[in-house]
Structures are given as structure tokens and as C-alpha cells.
């Protein structure tokens, strides 16, 4: 066991998989010699060589496409997209090619590609370095989509993603790379070292894709969240008189419907929070699923707390960010219904 932040945990996962499987390769902008702009691949090229940890041209479409070809030829590539906001030049290769290759060839060809992409705001990144596009990818059949909220899950889920024979889009909430940010920008930053899930095994383990986790048990209301919002929810619940049960969804696809519905059946109330914009966001899928599965248990309308339906504004980041105040108001609202 070691204390790791999320960057170190992700690095450890890739280090381990590069060591275990000669077919694992990493490719992305600045990932090689430099070790990545967020340092996630630091030291890996030195250790495994420049033929396994490969610096790429600035062409996300080319990065994704080349990993598809590599995957078809038996490699197990991990592509880093420097910011999730930069993934769009590669989106045709992801949606039309990577996601559907197995289907269109009836299983004869597939590409076990993992796409890592730092997402989310709260870092003064403006509208091109802050997006959370998980809902775009969860809408595509054939992709698995995950977002960890802790170093422990980040390492375990990334190992699962790399080992998975299906393509996985792996979103990394960059605001919590270095510590469990609870949504209050005025508070001094906390480090992962004091968080129980900042304790990460040095060796191999995995966290299965497709399982949500109950991170706080409660009786009054279920909060469905993932990524940075898990920590916002925990901080909000800690201060609230409402006894909230918090579920870290972790995996958008496949979705662990059982864990979600079991909780809502118990609490009878549900608040969904995500940083992405609200309209047609992943929260809509969660709300629809809860409504379909738990309608007769519901005592209040399901409520969503999301990023506003605007681009992520640079100067008004904290007005945009769905923080504790907005979540607390939503909890009060569903409790008073």
C-alpha cells in the first residue's frame, strides 16, 4: 500500500500494465519524453522505451485511428487525449469505427482501445479545457464509459479498462487529480493522503467496470453522482440535516442499475448531480432509469443539479460549477415535496 494521488495511481496502473503485457502501448500528445502535461505518464517512456510510450502528432483523429489499427493487429493501446475538450477531432473514429467495429464484423475484428481524457472544470480552463462530455459517449452503443472519483478507483478501473476487449472511454476529473475537491474554491486544497481511497496498493488489482458504489449510506434521499461531484456530495451531506445516501455511479456504460434502484427504493427520493450541462446530459438517462424502475417508491420528483446549459465560462467558473449550495437546495427541495 502507498499513498497516491490520482495522477500517481493512473501512472501506477499504466506502469503495471506495460510491465505485465508486452502488447500494451501508450500514445498521445506529450505523453512520452515529457510524461504528459498532467504528468500521468511520467517516467514510463524512460522505463519502457519510446516504442511503447509514444509521443504523437497533434491530431486526435489520427491518434484514435492509429490505435484502432494497432488494436486490430493485436496491441492493447491506451490513447491519451490531452483534454476531453480535444476529443472531437477523433469523434468519427470513436463513434463510427472503434465503437462499432466488433458489431459490423460480427466479432471478427475488434480493437481493445482505452481512451483516457482529463475532463471537468474548476481549473480556470475556460470553455475549451473544462468540459465533461461523458453523455456524448454514453449515447454511443459499443463504448464503455467510466469516470473514477478516487485514486483507488482510478487505478483499479484503468487496469480493468486496459484489460477489457471492448473500447473504454476513461474520463479523469482533473480537478481531483491532486486532492478530493469538495466544490469550495475558497477552502485550502486537501490532499489525497488524508482520504481513505488515497491508499492504493502498489501491485495489481482491479475495480470492475459496470459497478456503482455506495460511498455514504443514508435513509432520506439518494444522490447519484460521479467524478468530482462525489466529493461535493459528501461535503454537502456532511453539513446537511438530510441523511443522504451517496452513490458513485463510476461507470456510465454499463450502468449498474441494481445498485441505483435498490437505494432509491429505500430512500424514495433522488437527486442527480453532474458537472456536465443538463439538457440531454447523462443525468437525464439516470432520471429516466430511476423513474422507470422506482416510480412507485418515489415520494418526490427526481431533481437534477448540473452545469448550466452554457459553455463553461472562464470568469464565472464558480457560478457555473454545481457546488454544495445548489446541491443543498436540491436536497431541501426534494425533502419538502
Amino acid at each position: 500500500m502507498a499513498r497516491m494521488n490520482m495522477i500517481q495511481a493512473l501512472n501506477s496502473a499504466m506502469d503495471l500494465m506495460l510491465g505485465r503485457d508486452p502488447d500494451v502501448v501508450i500514445i498521445g500528445e506529450d505523453v512520452g519524453y515529457f510524461g504528459g502535461v498532467f504528468r500521468c505518464t511520467e517516467g514510463l517512456q524512460r522505463k519502457y522505451g519510446e516504442h511503447r510510450v509514444i509521443d504523437a502528432p497533434i491530431a486526435e483523429g489520427g491518434i484514435i485511428a492509429s490505435t484502432i489499427g494497432m488494436g486490430v493487429h493485436g496491441l492493447r493501446p491506451v490513447a491519451e487525449i490531452q483534454f476531453a475538450d480535444y476529443i472531437y477531432p477523433g469523434i468519427d473514429q470513436i463513434i463510427s469505427e472503434l465503437a462499432r467495429l466488433r458489431y459490423r464484423t460480427a466479432g471478427d475484428f475488434f480493437a481493445p482501445v482505452t481512451i483516457r481524457a482529463p475532463c471537468g472544470g474548476g481549473i480556470r480552463g475556460g470553455q475549451t479545457h473544462s468540459q465533461s462530455p461523458e453523455g456524448i459517449f454514453s449515447h454511443v452503443c459499443g463504448l464503455k464509459v467510466v469516470m473514477p472519483s478516487t485514486p483507488y478507483d482510478a487505478k483499479g478501473l484503468l487496469i480493468s479498462a486496459i484489460e477489457d476487449d471492448d473500447p473504454v472511454v476513461f474520463f479523469e476529473p482533473k480537478r481531483i487529480y491532486n486532492g478530493p475537491f469538495d466544490g469550495d474554491p475558497d477552502k485550502p486544497a486537501t490532499a489525497w493522503s488524508s482520504h481513505p481511497k488515497g491508499e492504493v496498493p502498489d501491485g495489481y488489482y482491479s475495480v470492475p467496470i459496470g459497478r456503482a458504489e455506495v460511498v455514504r449510506e443514508g435513509e432520506d434521499v439518494t444522490i447519484l453522482c460521479y467524478g468530482t461531484m462525489v466529493h461535493v456530495a459528501e461535503a454537502t451531506a456532511a453539513r446537511s440535516e438530510v441523511d443522504a445516501e451517496i452513490i458513485d455511479v463510476r461507470s456510465m456504460v454499463p450502468l449498474d442499475v441494481g445498485t441505483l434502484t435498490k437505494s432509491v427504493e429505500k430512500t424514495g427520493r433522488c437527486v442527480i448531480i453532474h458537472e456536465a450541462t443538463r439538457f440531454s446530459g447523462f443525468g437525464a438517462e439516470l432520471a429516466a432509469t430511476v423513474q422507470e424502475e422506482c416510480f412507485y417508491y418515489l415520494e418526490a420528483p427526481i431533481t437534477r443539479v448540473c452545469g448550466w446549459d452554457t459553455p463553461y465560462p472562464h470568469a464565472f467558473e464558480w457560478e457555473y460549477f454545481p457546488g454544495q449550495k445548489r446541491l443543498a437546495a436540491a436536497l431541501d427541495q426534494v425533502m419538502s415535496a
Partner: peptide, 22 residues
């Protein structure tokens, strides 16, 4: 496999060739 989205196979072939070289 042939895709209806034109040209997508071109950079994929390059990736396959890169893997062959690797």
C-alpha cells in the same frame, strides 16, 4: 472491414503498420 464513412480506413491502416513495426 469496409466502412461507409469514407477514408476512415486510411489512418487505421497506418496504425496497423505501426503495430507491425513495433
Amino acid at each position: 472491414s469496409i466502412s461507409g464513412n469514407l477514408g476512415t480506413q486510411f489512418p487505421q491502416a497506418v496504425g496497423w503498420a505501426m503495430a507491425s513495426a513495433i
